[in-house]
Every structure is written in C-alpha cells, then in structure tokens.
C-alpha cells in the first residue's frame, strides 16, 4: 500500500452532511455524502452518494464514484468486502475512523497520521 506522501491528493470522507462540520458516517456504500478534500490546500467538495438508498451492490458502485473522482484515500468506518476489493484494486488506501466526530476532526487526524490504515 502506498503511504500518504503529502503530495497533492484527494481524500474521501464518508459523511452525514455536506460540510466539514458534518458528522462522519460509519457506513461506506450507504453513506449519504462523500466529502472530498484536497490534502494540499484543504479545499473540499461534497458529493451526494447516488447509491445511499440503492437496493443492492451499492458498495462496488460507490467505489466507482471514488475512482471516477480520482480519490486516492478513503476515510470511513466500515467498508464491505466487495467495495474493499474494488478500492484495493484501484489503489485507494482505506483508513478507519469511528463515528462521533466531524469531518474536520477526521481530516485533522488524517494529516497527523493518527488514523489506522485498514488492511
């Protein structure tokens, strides 16, 4: 797995809302929003997850959203087996962040490299 080298890199946080103050969401495929933050300058955009209420197979579909947006790392609580396989094959590093804090807190932990990397 590639280490976070501090180069320009887009990181995805699963979130319950659209801002940096929104709570992080523990689920990946059914997260309401993906907040994509540029590691270099902290600029961000929120994408609504079109598969949040999908019938099935939402994990790999949500992973495709990340691939299409050129995301290099994912911070989420729980990533299912199928999504994990897609993300790993696409070279997206996964980090675990339990719910409770804001996206801003999680980004802070990411920059301080205190988040646990998920295998």
């Amino acid at each position: 797995m590639s280490k976070n080298k501090g180069a320009i890199m887009k990181i995805c946080f699963t979130a319950k809302g659209t801002t940096l103050d929104s709570q992080t969401e523990e689920r990946f495929g059914r997260a309401p929003y993906f907040i994509l933050i540029e590691s270099e300058n902290g600029s961000f955009e929120a994408i609504q997850n079109p598969f949040a209420d999908g019938g099935g197979g939402v994990g790999p579909k949500a992973a495709q959203v990340l691939i299409a947006n050129n995301v290099k790392a994912l911070v989420s609580g729980q990533v299912g087996g199928n999504a994990r396989e897609v993300l790993a094959a696409a070279g997206i590093t996964m980090y675990i962040c339990r719910a409770g804090g804001s996206v801003r807190d999680a980004f802070d932990q990411f920059t301080k490299k205190t988040l646990e990397q998920s295998a």
């Binding site: 598969f51 019938g55 099935g56 197979g57 939402v58 994990g59 790999p60 579909k61 992973a63 495709q64 691939i67 199928n82 396989e85 897609v86 094959a89 696409a90």
Partner: peptide
C-alpha cells in the same frame, strides 16, 4: 458494462475488470 449493471456486479478499472458473481 459496469455503468449498465444496476447491481454493482461489474466494476471496470483502467486495466482490470472485477466481477462479483453473488451480486
């Protein structure tokens, strides 16, 4: 194929294609 599949059974990467038979 990946765009078409409503069940997420096919994921197409730039050099690989992943198939999830159970989906």
């Amino acid at each position: 194929c990946g765009e078409f599949c409503q069940y997420g059974a096919l994921t197409v990467l730039s050099k690989r294609i992943l198939f999830f038979p159970e989906l």
